[in-house]
């Protein structure tokens, strides 16, 4: 009945069996909190984000932080070596993590990361794509949909312009990037289901 935390936001998947569930959660929280703060700092630098109402800023961040983290940490997944590097710096093989109970979510995250990394985006392109991921007008709880939609459209136009300029002979890159958005939603839903399972456990 050993428990493992196969999320790479941990320092390690191994959980001290002597620790209570609350202690395990606290430790995990210490691992992901700095990354979440970085997402907030990133959001604040998106031109136009701070003009949105505070309610909508919070709603976008609540709904999109996981997806932003998936994009930011795509490089943790190495599908050639079939390894995942945890934030503690240690690498674990996909097979070992599967034996620890990782399921479809980690496999799907690996697939997503591999395809995203294969696009060979620059840091600037990746940042703009991440901004597009975060500013989505169809997130739940948005008060001023029109404002979020306007910012979203501006960001998508900027992304298209940047990608077209940088990849003149690869017309499909922009389309492929937009198709990553529903993939991220799907990963987000799977992650929410796993959180529920974790809490029930």
């Amino acid at each position: 009945n050993r428990m493992y935390l196969v999320c790479p936001m941990n320092t390690s998947p191994h959980v001290d069996p002597l620790k209570s569930g609350h202690e395990v959660w606290e430790e995990f929280s210490h691992c992901f909190t700095p990354a979440v703060r970085e997402v907030v700092e990133f959001a604040k630098k998106i031109p136009g984000f701070r003009v949105l109402s505070q309610h909508d800023q919070v709603s976008l961040l609540k709904a999109g932080t996981f997806e932003v983290l998936v994009v930011r940490f795509a490089s943790l997944f190495d599908m050639k070596e079939r390894t995942v590097t945890f934030l503690g710096g240690n690498k674990y093989s996909v097979d070992a993590l599967r034996a620890m109970g990782s399921g479809d979510l980690l496999n799907s995250m690996s697939d997503f990361s591999e395809k995203l990394m294969n696009l060979g985006l620059s840091e600037e392109e990746m940042s703009l794509f991440t901004a597009v991921v975060l500013v989505s007008a169809d997130r739940s709880g948005i008060e001023n949909v029109n404002s979020v939609e306007a910012l979203q459209e501006t960001l998508i136009r900027a992304l298209r312009s940047l990608i077209t300029r940088n990849h003149p002979n690869e017309s499909a890159v922009f389309t492929k990037l937009l198709l990553k958005l529903p993939d991220l939603r799907s990963l987000n839903n799977m992650h929410s289901e796993q959180l529920l399972a974790f809490k029930v456990h």
């Binding site: 929280s29 979440v36 703060r37 700092e41 505070q54 919070v58 932080t65 289901e193 959180l195």
Partner: peptide
């Protein structure tokens, strides 16, 4: 389940990071 961000404590972290900055700007 409907609000995993709140369950994780994410909302607190997000609000502190956003509002903390607002307070700094007011100072």
């Amino acid at each position: 389940f409907n609000d995993p961000a709140s369950n994780l404590g994410l909302e607190d972290i997000i609000r502190k990071a956003l509002i903390g900055n607002l307070e700094e700007r007011q100072e």
